[in-house]
Design a protein around this nucleic acid. Structure first.
Lengths: 198, 198
DNA sequence: TTCGGCTAGTGACATTTGTCACCTTCAATT
DNA sequence: AATTGAAGGTGACAAATGTCACTAGCCGAA
């Protein structure tokens, strides 16, 4: 079983890789971010891609979409810190084989990998139910505006970045604030981020 | 050598603990957050406390201060995700024996622990220099106001939370914005957070 | 064609946020 | 006692943000 592990935090990556290598018949390669993983996947054949979500250059979710299009036979397992409905939904939509929280002990990870090897899908019902819970109510434009606002950009700067009038940008933000029942753009951005919608 | 490992992410904690246990003569206990670690320290004797910073209930830095007062002989090592000058400064002030970024490979952690056992201090010069770089220019009031603002609270809500007039709250924020060369409260809060000042 | 109904976008207005000059208060100095 | 200066606090004004009624364009149905 050849595994590619994509995770940007070096200590976590090296620790997980060391432990997986202790298991019989696991060969583990490491990638420092999504982009590196994508390159590596094109050069060698792997059985399983084990990846974090929040990484620079190319997020785990973006990587998943790429895999789905270019190497649909490759099995994928997500390990992530954040229990965000939006993440789970997008991962499931991209045909992921496993979805694990870093909140689980390492034994669970190893166990899940065995199951995935055997052809099973391991996503807890609890997580799946959550994903079906709230749908993301934001439009693409609203999402973009909100993301920039959350970083402290002014309405004017946001308008320029999105090639729209200032008033329009304010409108998008206002809509987003209202949809998310927030009181201002910062609250709205925080909430949306928490839900994995940004 | 008896080690207490405090880290809230279960997968990381169990993975590190497993690896450390593979080393000869390390006995490792685990604590799920700062508060749990503090309790455990009172019940048993440890040689080294290895702790994360960002944890619920009691942060690693708060834990350090407690250790300094109650068990000054205990050696402490910080492992943290974030390279924030404020963190390093506070850790050094609290007499830490080691400061490592999760950006380093696991081998470095093991190596550093050995050195700390032997009585050395392991904090890279690079990090120390950084810590001496910028000083936190915020007053306590400014810091509190900025923290709340960063969470999306309105000026009025902040004023109520801090028992001050609305105008005063705006003043604190304005001062903070100016000191940090930001354009608005959100940018200021992000920057301060990045520096480890919140 | 004409009529909705939908989405994208705009501008005017009210509210909130940011700035600044200016009070207090209180302790240290003369 | 008078003076100074620092820290906490206030209020008035300008600028940015949030809201809302509205226009323009673009389908698809009658």
């Amino acid at each position: 079983m050849k595994i590619l592990l994509a995770e940007d935090q070096t200590m976590v990556r090296t620790a997980l890789a060391s432990l997986l290598r202790l298991e019989a018949d696991y060969e583990v390669d490491e990638a420092v971010d999504g982009a590196a993983a994508q390159q590596q996947l094109q050069q060698e054949h792997y059985d399983i891609l084990l990846t974090d979500i929040e990484m620079p250059h190319l997020s785990g979710l973006e990587l998943l979409q790429w895999v789905q299009q270019h190497q649909p036979a490759l099995k994928t397992v997500i390990i992530t810190t954040f229990n965000r409905a939006g993440y789970i939904k997008r991962a499931v939509d991209a045909g992921v084989s496993g979805f694990l929280l870093k909140d689980a002990p390492i034994a669970t990870l190893i166990d899940s990998l065995h199951k995935v090897c055997a052809g099973a899908r391991v996503i807890s019902n609890e997580l799946l139910l959550q994903a079906l819970g709230q749908q993301d109510p934001l439009t693409e434009k609203e999402r973009k505006a909100l993301r920039l606002a959350g970083q402290g950009m002014s309405t004017q700067a946001i308008a320029e970045a999105l090639f729209i009038a200032e008033g329009t940008a304010r409108n998008y933000l206002s809509e987003a604030i209202s949809k998310l029942h927030a009181n201002n753009r910062v609250e709205a951005a925080r909430f949306a981020h928490q839900q994995g919608w940004l």
